[in-house]
Design a protein around this nucleic acid. Structure first.
Lengths: 167, 167
DNA sequence: CTCCCTTGCTAACAGTGTTAGCCTGAAATT
DNA sequence: AATTTCAGGCTAACACTGTTAGCAAGGGAG
């Protein structure tokens, strides 16, 4: 049929992004993705090597957006930390696909991960080891919160206050 | 056949535990589990309601062993923190199944999660909010390390030293 | 001896990612 | 203008996942 605005790689990537945001990683199947593009699943493979390529694209997009969100935040540690939390909670599926599953380093643009990592490290201004601990602290807080690991009555605002104070 | 030492629920749980430790969550399929018990996958359902029940059992075992490991460690914050890391790195699949996927609270013994949580909180001796931040810090460090998120040349011993100092 | 129930089995279904092979219409070449 | 090439759709199928239905055989209870 050669639909003139047929699913190019870019279009697939955009729809996959939407699907992920709506349905989460579990809902991101090749058939569901194909449905939204009004094609059948095997046709996707005319544009994309495998599902990993799609996931890698989403990880790249996630890193990009995440990095921008932190960049846009105020310069203080506190503002950066809260921006980290805010973005992760507003985009839990994106956060999960970029941070909680193995990063497909070979298939995302070089430098993207480094850029985000360096930005996080710069939040503290101290050495790399300290920065890594800070990153781990923020990631741990977000990860446990998304996983519902804290009791319902936990005062997470206060927890983050304490965390920022520890930095 | 009614094999006298046939796969009772207990036996299934033990073999599942072994399988998880060896092959990880992805390798823990009902058919693989059945193979090791020398039965077919559908026969598992004569002993167990579904796969979630098996996972819940593993989460309970994981929490138990994890709790013991920390309990056995020295009383200092540093000793506890290092025990946390040591156990998680030595049992990455168990750590993952108990902490990195949703905890099946309805299907594990009541109090188990609370016990472990309280133990972690007691490490600091301070208030709950501070303790949660400490937990998040340790979890974040372990999670990022297992996920291979830190550069290969990162000095994680030093990072943990810095982290313990932050507590 | 007979009945029942436990616990195995096979066949099957719906879902997953993925491959092979076919077909068709549009674009490019002669 | 006629022909060839090829991008991009399709169906059928495979191996895998968890799971259900229904059958069969053996041991224990009456």
């Amino acid at each position: 049929m050669a639909n003139t605005n047929g699913p190019t790689r870019e279009r697939i990537s955009v729809i996959a992004y939407e699907l992920l945001k709506e349905k989460g990683i579990a809902g991101l199947s090749m058939r569901a993705l194909a449905d939204r593009l009004h094609i059948k699943a095997p046709s996707l493979y005319k544009h994309v090597a495998d599902k990993e390529e799609i996931i890698a694209g989403l990880q790249a997009r996630g890193l990009q957006e995440f990095g921008n969100a932190i960049k846009r935040a105020g310069k203080s540690k506190r503002a950066k930390a809260l921006a980290y939390r805010k973005w992760a909670l507003e985009n839990p599926h994106l956060y999960e696909i970029t941070v909680s599953i193995p990063l497909l380093r070979d298939r995302i643009p070089v430098g993207l991960e480094d850029g985000v990592t360096r930005m996080i490290i710069e939040i503290t201004g101290k050495d790399h080891e300290h920065a890594r601990a800070v990153w781990a602290l923020m990631h741990g807080l977000v990860d446990l919160e998304i996983a519902g690991r804290f009791p319902k009555d936990a005062d997470l605002e206060l927890t983050w206050k304490r965390a920022v104070a520890m930095i």
